[in-house]
């Protein structure tokens, strides 16, 4: 008796493939593998170059750190200045005549800074193009 149960009728060919698919597949796969192999080779080359450079760069960095550490040791002050020594130095410091003259000139100009500007002076200052640019 002929069975109507699909489980009894095993078909391995329910699906079809485009014409020539299995004939072409091995060479298509070979192309894909070759291109993947080339990618790996390029990557390996890059990583080799980078690895070489990394060694050089890291060696330079280590050398630099050593030099800096050496240099920073030699620039350390022999001893720190205490406040007593600083006071003595400032007490003994004498202002000569030329320095005094400069100080007086400076004190004369100082009045323009310490006096409050008038409203007109402020407006004049703000309206000057150069000052506007500076403010911006």
């Amino acid at each position: 008796m002929k069975s109507n149960n699909p489980l009894d009728k095993k078909s391995l060919h329910s699906f079809d493939v485009p014409k020539g698919y299995f004939e072409e597949f091995p060479s298509k796969l070979q192309d894909v593998i070759n291109s993947e192999e080339n990618e790996i080779t390029i990557w390996e080359k890059i990583s080799l170059i980078l690895r070489g450079r990394f060694t050089i760069v890291s060696s330079i960095m280590v050398a630099l750190v050593l030099v800096i550490l050496q240099f920073s040791d030699s620039t350390k002050p022999e001893k720190s200045i205490n406040s007593e020594e600083a006071y003595t130095y400032l007490s003994n410091f004498e202002i000569d005549e030329y320095n005094e003259l400069l100080l007086f000139e400076y004190m004369e100009d100082w009045s323009s800074v310490t006096n409050e500007p008038t409203e007109d002076e402020i407006i004049e200052y703000l309206m000057t193009q150069e000052n506007i640019e500076i403010e911006i």
Binding site: N4, P6, K9, S11, H13, S14, F15, D16, V17
Partner: peptide, 9 residues
């Protein structure tokens, strides 16, 4: 379109 089985399949 590449399914070639009959109705039962």
């Amino acid at each position: 379109p590449l399914f070639t089985g009959d109705e039962m399949e």
